[in-house]
Amino acid sequence: MSVRHSLLALLAGEPAHGYGLKSGFEASTAGTWPLNVGQVYTTLRRLERDGLVKPTGTGDDSRQTWRITPQGRKELGQWFDTPIPGDPPQRDELAIKVLLAVATDRDDIADMLQSQRVSTMERLQAYTRHKRRADPQAELPWILLLDALILQAEAEVKWLDLCEARLQKRKKR
């Protein structure tokens, strides 16, 4: 995840100081990736070095505020316009675990798949409970994020089903 581009995106809305960027980031990503304020300042200094933001002096509360430069807007536009490559795939511990169990011919694979299925399903139920409680107007980012997590968990359950079906087919031969 790019802190750099996230800060540019927030500054494209309006100039802000470091702490404001921290809370702005957490609000727009539903508080799921807490950002420490030190990280915000380090990133701002690097953005300034690259000519993408500029200090605008201090606000009423004597804190340093920052604004985005035209070059910064250009960089941000490119980030939004470029699809996430998704390649190489992220390392997936579950996939590795299942593949190793198959490669080493463990005889308890079916139990392993089932206990994972229950655990993933419980996670999915918890996400859904969060979604039920969320306000669709005021908490849209949170709901979108939960949708993503729910679909990822659903894909995991489907994959476990598929593993089980393929392993059974192999056993029958």
Partner: peptide, 24 residues
């Protein structure tokens, strides 16, 4: 063979195990 929901409280904690943002 199984059922979920044995301990709903355990899954009700705030979601806090997110990957941290990558360094700038």
């Amino acid at each position: 063979v199984d059922e979920t929901g044995a301990s709903p409280d355990a899954t009700e904690r705030p979601i806090s195990h997110w990957p941290s943002p990558s360094s700038p």
